[in-house]
Design a protein around this nucleic acid. Structure first.
Lengths: 113, 113
DNA sequence: TTGACATATTCCCATATCGGAATGTATTGT
DNA sequence: ACAATACATTCCGATATGGGAATATGTCAA
């Protein structure tokens, strides 16, 4: 077998920096392919192909209007990534870490009434 | 050029499901290669190679003890992913979304005193 | 020393990728 | 009808991948 296809899930689609740049460039709004080409300095086929991958995994949605295609981010498709990485958040988030300490302390008190 | 190497950053390293499984299996503790082989049902070379990729991007740390290697997750290496995906959180998190509404409302009131 | 054990590394191959260049397909304006 | 515009698709080649199988490296135990 080879590497997991980029179109298999959000994790693989987003691994490519250019595709993250595209999502960042779209932000909360809409943009056409041409606008994205200008903003990112990529070639038109590059942008179209990357958008194709993002669309395949549901990370972007398209709306046709004349000869333009308005792309926008489909945020919820990123939730699986957020959910997964969030389970490790305690290892660098001091606030959550201190919450752990507090809970442990309460647990101890409970054992020594 | 080809696809971005798996060892270039956390995004690419974590794109492979087996490597996420390895990180999940490690959790907050430590484990040897053999233990991970048993837990995940992968072959030993598979586990060693995947751990090699994770180590290359700093996602795991190793401690040698005799003929065993104790691996553990290096959480902070996941922070770049968390930070990036977090900027899109508003699109699915209702609480943050309502906070946006509230702020917009306050803004309107300010304009109509 | 020798053998068993734990882990890492190498070799092989089928496969998907990315970029570049060229071309295809709609849609619009004149 | 025709040219221009906006975008998608195809063909190409170089490259890294992941699994399997075999082998190498290092450590312990008798």
């Amino acid at each position: 077998m080879a590497r997991t296809p980029t179109t298999s899930d959000a994790f693989n689609a987003v691994a490519e920096a250019s595709r993250r740049d595209l999502l960042d460039a779209l932000g909360t709004g809409e943009a056409t392919v041409g606008e994205l080409v200008d903003r990112l300095g990529l070639t038109q086929p590059q942008v179209s192909k990357h958008l194709g991958v993002l669309r395949a995994v549901g990370l972007v949605l398209v709306r046709a209007e004349g000869r333009h295609r308005w792309y926008r981010v489909n945020g919820p498709a990123l939730k699986p990534i957020h959910d997964w990485v969030r389970t490790f958040e305690r290892s660098w988030n001091v606030r959550l870490d201190r919450l752990d300490d507090l809970l442990a302390e309460l647990q101890t008190e409970e054992n020594h009434p």
